[in-house]
Design a protein around this nucleic acid. Structure first.
Lengths: 148, 148
DNA sequence: TTGCATTGCTATGTGCAATAGCATTGAATA
DNA sequence: TATTCAATGCTATTGCACATAGCAATGCAA
């Protein structure tokens, strides 16, 4: 009953990701939000006026899939859109959105702390860099591609 | 235009996972298989006679979701089930399944190698352990839980 | 001004994971 | 041994994340 997959970084990455995401969402459910909405609020909070398309690019979400995400957060009273262009809309947080962003941020910070505690102390400084390399090293998936 | 999420392990983990998985599937598409089926074949190849439920537990897939997975791989002529019990079925690979497992394994090994090349040499030994900790440290998601 | 890229959007399909429930079967216990 | 309980494989359904194709309106650049 051995697991021939347990040494494959790709496999471990996927298993770790789903497990970690599941627990994060479980915690975020306590304040009635999910990780996608929380990420959006945090991103907009740090970059008010950001365009819907730009936000999608930074979050790795396609334009088409941004529509329900933005609509949902606007309907919840967290997001405000204002036309900057004939086509672009600048996004910003309402006061309620700002409050929610703070709450989410607190939950996430607590969770990240808990997460890192599962890693032996001497390896902790390497966690973020390694994940960054695993992500950023993907050619064609780079964070700074200009044309899809 | 700064990214306030870029330092969060949980966020990085998710982004890295989706990016890596996408590229792996792209490569596996070259031999007409996806990562889920490939994982199954590799697992069964190393553990012939494994039960459908056991395989699901090892792969983190629920019983209900194993049904189409097994059926698909049986329909492809890769998997063989034989009743060991009135209820359990032992899984094993057909010769074609064995061949496909080898091909998949080769693609995956090449990919993992490519993946690890994106990580600076001095950090490489830490990749698998860190991912293991991030995964295995999840309480309630442990690899060795007996009851769901 | 005319061609082209961008933006936000609709519609749609696919794959993965989760839940609830079911009949059959095996195992443990009284 | 008979009864209870858990496990197995399955159906049916749901929700979510992600992808593609296409569209009208708009901005930009040659």
């Amino acid at each position: 009953m051995k697991d021939p997959l347990a040494l494959l970084p790709g496999y471990l990455l996927r298993r770790a990701s789903t497990a970690v995401l599941a627990e994060l969402n479980q915690r975020l459910a306590g304040i009635e939000i999910n990780h996608a909405d929380a990420s959006l609020l945090i991103l907009i909070g740090h970059n008010p006026g950001l365009t819907q398309s730009d936000a999608g690019r930074m979050l790795g979400i396609q334009r088409a899939n941004m529509v329900p995400l933005i609509a949902r957060n606007e309907a919840r009273g967290w997001l405000i859109r204002q036309q900057v262009d004939g086509r672009s809309q600048g996004l910003s947080l309402s006061p309620e959105g700002e409050a929610m962003r703070h709450s989410a941020r607190a939950v996430i910070d607590r969770f990240e702390e808990h997460l890192i505690e599962g890693v032996p102390q001497d390896l902790r400084p390497h966690v973020v860099p390694i994940l960054g390399y695993l992500w950023g090293a993907r050619p064609g998936q780079s964070r700074r591609r200009s044309r899809p």
